[in-house]
Design a protein around this nucleic acid. Structure first.
Lengths: 127, 127
DNA sequence: ACCTCATATGAATATCTGTTCATATGTTAT
DNA sequence: ATAACATATGAACAGATATTCATATGAGGT
């Protein structure tokens, strides 16, 4: 008895496995949100900002100077990080200080870095 | 005494902090590789594939059927996952089975999912 | 040899996203 | 109020990347 296939142009080979996995899959909303979390971490510029904030809270100007990026660029990327709730900010006069929002992020970032350091040789930095 | 600014159009406010952070920054290569790791996880299609493989090894056809994606799409994305060493594959006749490459990845993915589940309400799934 | 099925891949397209430039907002000092 | 500085943001552009379509490879069966 064949299932009706939608986009898949081949036959289902392991219905039992498919069914087992289907039950355990996180719901679509969680999946998209999580993928989006990684998307925010995935950009070089943003990731540099994040790793910088791993050490110390910083203002936009410091970040811009340290990472050798235009103030505008840093600001734009900080906005995305804010939207994703990866960083928080506090204002002190004209200066706005940014820091990581919680330790979850730190752990994820740290795991990522560790993974690269350990499995070092193989992984490509570019496509 | 002012530093010479390159792209930064404002003044350095906390030289001490900048210097402290500069020392602790991971080198550029590690940064890029790690950002790239997240980049591979960041796509919806690939992330669905990854979370699926979290439960069980699967062949291309099963994945394509379960996730309701064209075989071509799944194959393309699996190739990127392979290049990034996130999945490995074994051939059995005509069928190719894919599974996660190591438990590092599982942990990172799991952390991501957990983070979303806990800090639930706030995070946006789309920009 | 051929045909069929599972998978892979090249090329083209369409969409998304990072970066820059110009300018606006908000805060402090004069 | 005006000026100076730190930051934010809208619009435009450029480059990247996901998806589709058509086709190739590779393996098993007849």
């Amino acid at each position: 008895m064949k299932k009706q296939l939608m986009v898949c142009d081949c036959n289902v080979i392991h219905e039992d496995v498919v069914n087992e996995v289907k039950d355990k899959l996180p719901n679509l909303d969680e999946l998209e949100k999580t993928a989006n979390l990684f998307k925010v971490l995935a950009d070089n510029t943003r990731f540099k900002i994040i790793t910088t904030l791993l050490t110390h809270e910083m203002c936009v100007c410091d970040l811009s100077y340290l990472l050798n990026m235009s103030q505008s660029l840093v600001s734009h990327q900080l906005r995305k990080l804010r939207k994703a709730r990866l960083v928080k900010h506090r204002r002190e006069g004209k200066v706005v200080y940014y820091s990581l929002d919680d330790e979850h992020i730190e752990r994820i970032v740290q795991y990522g870095l560790d993974h690269i350091r350990e499995s070092g040789e193989g992984f490509e930095s570019r496509d």
